[in-house]
Design a protein around this nucleic acid. Structure first.
Lengths: 158, 158
DNA sequence: GTAATTGCAAATGGTTTGCATGTAA
DNA sequence: TTACATGCAAACCATTTGCAATTAC
């Protein structure tokens, strides 16, 4: 079996953006794109470098940074800083459509859960408008303890 | 006229926390506290250092960092990273009560507007609970362009 | 007197940049 | 052939830390 269909679409989108901007389609960029599209969500530069190097060991740090910045510019990636260590990147597109969502972060196991709530989005939009603001983007992160970790620590206490 | 009443209450709270924890009330800490309580909202370490040094020129960088960490621990300050440059700190207490709120940030003039919406807070709480999460804190930041900046750039375009 | 605190300078960690070399178009 | 891209190392920036000197209690 080949790469999932979605990957082809993502690669195509990247190629289109690069040619439109007069940028070049290089082996490194394709390798990093593969690693990114096929990797876990909320991946760090470091993790991505390791993944990319399994296909091309000579890829450098700076190239991964520059490439992910490129992906972010063209809308394929979004950056998130969850307050510990390095920025994490996720694929911004699911099939054809943008896939906006926010995050819950477990402070114990650091697992990230995605959520989307139209009601909150709507209230936020109205609130901003009322204050004369035109929304460009937003960041809504909820930090807490997930069910599994709460159970585990209840266990430990007895 | 003396310092506003609120400052005394804040200082008292700090003193109480320090003595409870066996920490010492030093000149530097009091000076930095003054600078913080009396300064602008959303202040940076750098700005705070400048303010503090007008009262005591020998205060060092590291001390301001350590002191603001202390204020944060004892609930007098909250930290915010608005995505550009350094962390900003604000006084967390308004009179006697905690004063939770979120922020709108203008991407052009970088002005910060505070907001609080009980409806959003409630939805967020229910959503987290539904996902098995116990909320510890959250961060809700809206980035956009404020009314003044939109008008200014509309002006410029003609 | 003794443990906490300070100031300084050096270390850290994530990210960016300058530059000589390499390569896609 | 000529911009653009890469890899490396050095630079950067905010923040933290080790340590000797100082100070609060």
């Amino acid at each position: 079996m080949g790469a999932p269909i979605a990957h082809d679409a993502l690669h195509a989108r990247l190629e289109a953006y690069m040619s439109k901007k007069g940028l070049r389609s290089t082996g490194q960029r394709r390798t990093i794109a593969d690693a990114f599209f096929g990797g876990p969500r909320h991946i760090t530069i470091e993790e991505l470098l390791v993944r990319a190097r399994t296909n091309d060991p000579r890829i450098g740090y700076a190239t991964v940074y520059r490439t992910l910045k490129l992906f972010t510019e063209c809308g394929l990636a979004t950056e998130h800083d969850f307050g510990d260590g390095p920025t994490r990147y996720e694929v911004a597109i699911d099939g054809e459509a943008d896939h906006h969502h926010d995050h819950l972060i477990c402070l114990e196991c650091r697992r990230i859960t995605e959520f989307h709530d139209e009601e909150i989005e709507g209230l936020q939009e109205r609130l901003a408008r009322r204050l004369g603001f035109e929304i460009e983007s937003h960041k809504h992160e909820i930090y807490g303890v997930c069910e599994a970790c709460r159970k585990a620590s209840a266990q430990k206490k007895r």
